[in-house]
Simulated assay, not measured.
Amino acid sequence: MDKFTAYWSHISSGDRILILMGGMIFFWLLEGYYPLFRFSFKRWKHAGVNLIFLGTTLALNLIFGLVTIKVCLFVEAHQFGLLYWLGLPTIWSWLIGMLFMDFFGQYLPHWLMHHIKFMWKFHMVHHSDTKVDVTTGTRHHPGEWLFRETSTIIGILLIGVPVGLYFLYRSCAALFTHFNHANIRVPPAIDRPISWIFVSPNMHKAHHHYQRPLTDTNYSNIFSLWDRLFGTFAYEDPRNLRYGLDVLDDTTDEKVGYQFKIPFDSSIKTDY
């Protein structure tokens, strides 16, 4: 366990990028062989649009992500937070930390963005994709990053997350994001058992249905526990789903300028 924690505490930027891009490339290739839906679209153009949003996220991480790292270092230096106060063995401490980071880093801000109108307008950019695939997981408006990172920092302080655990969480979160959004065909006999503990591809696809109430379900990213605990879990046959949003024109999903302006366009009506 010492070697494991030491690796994540000192993981290089190269390894972190390799995990991020390697997972995306793997599922991108897998989509070509075992697609859930056979979309009539240009995969490279679609990916290019979504990767523009990935670029803004990476830029924000480079500029402001240091704040998050400094909070982790503060937590370590002062032995601050729930995990330090409990004094559990490292393996249990990190497992509990991963579970609660999924709540603060994903479930909580995700739930808020679906229930607070001004936050939802930013999150609409992610849901506006009418051809959900592995690149959709990177499609987030810069404003959404601020909501998520703020909640993540709060979680780090409350839980007591050291920098190594934070990097492990980020890497696992990225891989699950690729896995859950990938346009891959997973038989229900495999997908359903996965969803008992983790967020599975078919489970998350229900969240991308174009209409409520399915849109307002399945907020977790790694562990399905949070959705089951708070009554937001849903499971639907992917063949019954349609991606996008009923308040947006489907033809706007690859218009980058339009997408960036969605949060500030008062003519776009929402139900929130």
Results as ranks from 00 to 15, higher is better:
residue 104 F to A: 03
residue 149 E to K: 14
residue 20 L to T: 11
residue 205 K to D: 03
residue 101 M to C: 14
residue 33 Y to I: 09
residue 88 L to W: 08
residue 270 T to H: 02
residue 39 F to C: 03
residue 14 G to M: 05
residue 126 H to A: 04
residue 18 L to W: 14
residue 249 D to T: 00
residue 196 W to I: 15
residue 119 M to T: 10
residue 240 N to H: 05
residue 183 N to Q: 02
residue 223 F to R: 13
residue 186 V to S: 02
residue 163 V to Q: 09
residue 94 W to P: 12
residue 230 F to G: 08
residue 187 P to G: 08
residue 3 K to S: 11
residue 156 I to K: 01
residue 81 G to F: 05
residue 21 M to Y: 11
residue 254 E to P: 07
residue 143 G to D: 04
residue 179 F to G: 00
residue 202 N to K: 11
residue 78 H to W: 10
residue 1 M to V: 12
residue 265 D to Q: 11
residue 63 I to W: 14
residue 137 G to L: 05
residue 264 F to I: 06
residue 21 M to D: 14
residue 224 S to F: 05
residue 129 D to W: 14
residue 88 L to T: 05
residue 65 G to T: 09
residue 37 F to T: 09
residue 260 F to T: 04
residue 77 A to R: 15
residue 237 D to P: 01
residue 47 A to S: 13
residue 210 Y to I: 11
residue 50 N to K: 12
residue 93 S to I: 08
residue 30 L to C: 07
residue 116 I to V: 14
residue 215 T to S: 06
residue 154 I to H: 02
residue 74 F to T: 13
residue 184 I to E: 08
residue 155 G to P: 03
residue 44 W to Y: 08
residue 117 K to T: 04
residue 37 F to G: 01
residue 59 A to D: 00
residue 241 L to C: 06
residue 122 F to L: 15
residue 257 G to Q: 06
residue 123 H to R: 05
residue 123 H to M: 08
residue 12 S to R: 12
residue 9 S to G: 13
residue 179 F to T: 03
residue 233 F to D: 04
residue 271 D to K: 14
residue 268 I to P: 02
residue 147 F to D: 08
residue 52 I to S: 12
residue 272 Y to V: 07
residue 86 L to A: 01
residue 10 H to T: 15
residue 207 H to A: 13
residue 154 I to A: 12
residue 125 V to H: 01
residue 195 S to G: 12
residue 86 L to H: 05
residue 64 F to Q: 11
residue 40 S to I: 14
residue 195 S to F: 03
residue 198 F to L: 03
residue 262 I to T: 09
residue 111 W to T: 15
residue 223 F to G: 06
residue 140 H to S: 12
residue 197 I to E: 10
residue 23 G to P: 13
residue 71 V to L: 05
residue 99 L to F: 13
residue 70 K to A: 12
residue 162 P to G: 00
residue 173 A to E: 03
residue 254 E to W: 03
residue 55 G to W: 08
residue 257 G to M: 02
residue 18 L to K: 15
